[in-house]
Design a protein around this nucleic acid. Structure first.
Lengths: 351, 351
DNA sequence: CTGAAAGCGCTAACAG
DNA sequence: CTGTTAGCGCTTTCAG
């Protein structure tokens, strides 16, 4: 019922193979026949049947996107749509379609992947949010199937190409940014230490303190899940310290929003009384008052590069693995400020 | 090189068709042969080739998701991942895969769709964010291709099934909620009137005022794009009114965040001096201070139902179109409060 | 430069 | 209950 290559061939008085060739724009076909065939294709409303082609070429021109833990946890913020935009944009340029996993448990996701790979539904895979010691990675590696992970695959594998930020350096930069503003008591706020992103950032934070002769104290480190309640407890603890923090390094914009509200409630002014900076430069950073100084991790580029490298791997499976680090950049807005003088004025007033 | 049905057949001493039948779990195959064949499949590591099957069955068991304008505009908030979760979850239950468009312009998206449909890459389509007078909808309707739109397809089509909220009612409810708290001057804040969602909500707002004998005044209606700057201007205008608003109906959580910050900056306390309620109940509503009272539009269900109805249409293309309205619900948090007494105390103080 | 023929891996009658 | 036979729509040698 749908119009096939044969129908076109018949009407154009050529062989099916010829039609196939003009689809592929094979140079050994004369311009004349090409024009003729194309005309007929248009008249008949011909469209290539992807399945038939895939079956014979053993390629699908689609790449799969693996969402770990189904967006439920990891995807609090616009990260997901940003990477997708990046991936989508590059894939489209290269003529690739996108297929995405629906599984919402570790096992379900694993099954999805097996199905995609073994069922020959994708040529390559982009994995968002990988954890260490993942059997899926091992499987793909053994199969020698093209894939790249966005984020850090952990040290326990070789041969996997990934694209990520240099989280340690980013955190170091951001900490130094505060240090240069004169802050000496900087809280590391939010994030779950089990994730590599977070522990890497903590390393960077320590490194910065270290480099600048500030003693690291675990009291200023407050990892926590997304939760205003837990955040409030952490903030209380922080302000119970002999030297309460004058600046906060928030692991994500949502933590910064919590911070900003809670501190204001405590009658602190931001940035006059405390600076807040955070990771992830999403649009809401512009909407808060004060607007938030952020570390842009270039999520879009993360996606685009990932796409670029899977496609490279698809074309040349022997390509050596690459570790791509997308640079980060501080976006200064209103939530930071040099530290106040050590209250000399206040001292005067107090006596 | 990959193991096929024939390899299995040979090793199991049966015909390929038998293997095919056990894959389909055809009841007319004896349990004995089923077991035998399955054993061999496992031994050989057999996996079904999706393309081959799709080619003959003319089904793909995958549904396409059409993102209008590539997430760039419409997707400021977690809407996207929430619908996706809903869609994904239902599709997985029914054994469908997901494919998503990558186009980032009207034409590119249209091409993606044509390719998916004509190339037989999907059995059905879910369209997120439809605009009126869309040629894509017309095309699908003509083709009689199964699809459902999430949102409002506009009045200009019949025969399209869509799943949406009753935006007018939701807005009416939310306005009445404020009205019942005693608020008489309620601002309608944010949103772009060109979108049906927004104009429907405006209707609901008007209706509520009307029903409760409050005169509608366009001065309290401030549609605007996402932008703190424009929001500030609108807020200035609102407070220049003889009766400045005591409550704000924000079209989205991001507008509420802007409002909350800017009002606080103007030395207003929320909710003591002004109530804020908004549409969309995403997690950040819990993170702001005060936390935000929201209208939950049940994004996840929107997606899940959409998935359910495309699949229904795929199975029975003659199924009558349905217009599914997902109910909405107010989630009370801290950002609202009954209106203050008409400052009698203050009057006393003032004289 | 073009055609004929085989076959990708699977399903679906039709026999038996 | 199982095997035989076509054939889905396309690409790809191999001839010519």
């Amino acid at each position: 019922m749908a119009v096939t290559i044969k129908d076109v061939a018949k009407k154009a008085n050529v062989a099916p193979s010829t039609v196939s060739r003009v689809i592929a724009d094979n140079p050994s076909i004369s311009d004349k026949t090409k024009r003729k065939v194309r005309k007929v294709m248009k008249e008949l409303g011909y469209h290539l049947n992807a399945n038939a082609r895939n079956l014979v070429t053993k390629k699908t021109k689609t790449i799969g996107i693996v969402l770990k833990h189904s967006a439920r946890y990891s995807l609090h913020n616009p990260f997901f749509q940003e990477v997708m935009r990046g991936i989508g944009s590059h894939c489209r340029e290269e003529g690739y379609s996108l297929s995405i996993t629906t599984g919402d448990s570790e096992t379900a996701i694993y099954e999805d992947v097996i199905q995609m790979v073994e069922g020959r539904q994708v040529d390559g895979l982009i994995i968002l949010y990988s954890r260490k010691g993942d059997k899926m990675i091992r499987y793909l590696l053994e199969k020698n199937f093209p894939f790249v992970v966005v984020g850090h695959p952990g040290q326990d594998y070789t041969g996997v190409t990934y694209v990520d930020n240099d989280n340690q350096k980013a955190a170091k930069d951001l900490t130094e940014f505060l240090l240069f503003l004169g802050h000496k008591h900087i809280a590391f706020f939010g994030g779950v230490l089990e994730y590599d992103v977070v522990s890497d950032r903590l390393k960077g934070y320590k490194e910065a303190l270290n480099t600048h002769g500030i003693k690291f104290s675990p009291d200023y480190v407050k990892p926590l899940p997304y939760s205003r309640k837990e955040a409030m407890i952490a903030i209380d603890e922080l302000f119970a310290l002999p030297d309460s923090p004058t600046a906060f390094l928030a692991l994500d914009i949502d933590y910064a929003i919590i911070l900003s509200g809670v501190l204001t409630k405590r009658n602190m002014r931001i940035p006059e009384d405390a600076s807040i900076v955070c990771f992830n430069n999403y649009e809401v950073a512009d909407y808060t008052t004060p607007s938030l100084t952020t570390m842009d991790i270039h999520t879009y580029e993360l996606g685009a590069e990932a796409a670029r490298y899977v496609i490279e791997l698809i074309i040349n499976p022997q390509a050596i693995e690459k570790n791509v680090l997308i640079p980060t950049r501080i976006i200064e807005r209103e939530s930071h400020r040099p530290i106040k003088q050590e209250k000399p004025a206040e001292d005067v007033l107090m006596h």
